[in-house]
Design a protein around this nucleic acid. Structure first.
Lengths: 119, 119
DNA sequence: ACCACCTGTCAAGAAGAGTTGACACGTCCC
DNA sequence: GGGACGTGTCAACTCTTCTTGACAGGTGGT
């Protein structure tokens, strides 16, 4: 098994931020903060379609902001309940800078810049 | 003085989050946290084109994360310097929930859900 | 005049996120 | 067998964001 990268790396923070930067997903967090809920009911209460909510939930879960668990109700129906994860992120210039340091993707090393600026 | 809307309203936080949820913009914040810089040089150092950087900077400025000021150098050239704003945002389920409360856009209050369905 | 540097904006294409409807499966009750 | 409810997934479409190249302007120096 490949080791997990649990540290708050740039990619992780990026995933969290892009997961949170959406009105629908913010409202989903708000709804789940009040009470845990299952998909169909949450879709009814928030007024969004099931496929749409499903996609948003799986985006939030991928970012580690909510957790879903499949449970069986008394009448044998399988319902997936979602809870908010107790996350806490502090956003400051230093935080962002530290995360950006671990984002070396596609950025080539500047071997030698042509500093011939006349000025 | 007129009261500013400094509170983390939903739209404001949404703008901040979507501004931060981008690898290029994260790297711009990181670069400006080290030292203030002007557009062309920043474009050179980050390896992005001027129009692209210009767009990202104006997105960051619109979110209040950086501030730009047009200054004149010794040789009379007009250069726009950018600084990071000393922002600080705390992201928790409660924070998001509070912000989502002020996001009542298009979401009608569920007057009564006794549509034809049972239950 | 040219060339260096700085600033900004525009249209248009490429890429990705959001959204919908219809489909698949399951259990339980009448 | 219907219907109610629950789950998930798929291909298409729309929409926003991203990205590029070419263009506009400016100053100062050789």
């Amino acid at each position: 098994m490949p080791e997990e990268d649990t540290s708050s790396t740039g990619e992780q923070l990026l995933k969290v931020l892009s997961a949170l930067s959406n009105p629908h997903r913010m409202r989903i967090i708000a709804a789940l903060a009040v009470e845990r809920n299952y998909v169909s009911r949450l879709a009814r209460e928030t007024g969004m379609s099931r496929p749409l909510l499903h996609m948003h939930l799986q985006r939030l879960e991928a970012a580690g902001l909510v957790t879903g668990s499949l449970e069986l109700s008394d009448d044998g129906k399988a319902m997936k309940f979602f809870d908010v994860a107790p996350f806490i992120y502090e956003l400051t210039p230093q935080t962002i800078a530290a995360a950006a340091e671990t984002l070396r993707q596609g950025r080539q090393e500047a071997h030698s810049e042509l500093e011939g600026r006349g000025q």
